[in-house]
């Protein structure tokens, strides 16, 4: 888990660079997982308004959808709670191939 912390520092460093460049940034955190999921609770991802991303919240299965939601978060300034997995209809579009479920909190840095 210490590796996880080191990983978070790298993600936040990239977020700070984007902010310094004047690019709005949202942060996505894995807050809960069920079944098998590739990234543990506490994993962080930073998303710039233009869609650039750093870090990950899955094995690449749902990052695209999270970027899309993050852009909505940056547009209206409201945090969102997202849930991906087999019980979610959207799983067929952007779900986790491993069959796990994951809950993600997306918030703007402002």
């Amino acid at each position: 888990m210490s590796l996880l912390s080191a990983d978070s520092a790298t993600v936040l460093e990239q977020a700070a660079i984007w902010l310094a460049e004047g690019r709005p940034v949202a942060l996505a955190s894995v807050i809960a997982t069920w079944g098998s999921s590739p990234r543990p609770v506490g994993s962080l991802m930073a998303i710039a308004a233009d869609g650039a991303m750093a870090g990950s919240v899955s094995g690449g299965c749902i990052e695209g959808a999270v970027v899309y939601e993050a852009q909505a978060v940056l547009a209206d300034g409201e945090p969102r709670l997202l849930r991906f997995g087999i019980s979610n209809d959207r799983a067929w579009e952007v779900g986790l191939a491993c069959g796990g479920q994951v809950e993600i909190y997306v918030e703007p840095v402002r």
Partner: peptide, 23 residues
Amino acid sequence: LDRSGIVEFYDGRFFITVLNPPL
């Protein structure tokens, strides 16, 4: 414990993000 996670406190639901430096 170096463990992030959701905790319940009274009727609230909180997420704790632990940001520890590397060991």
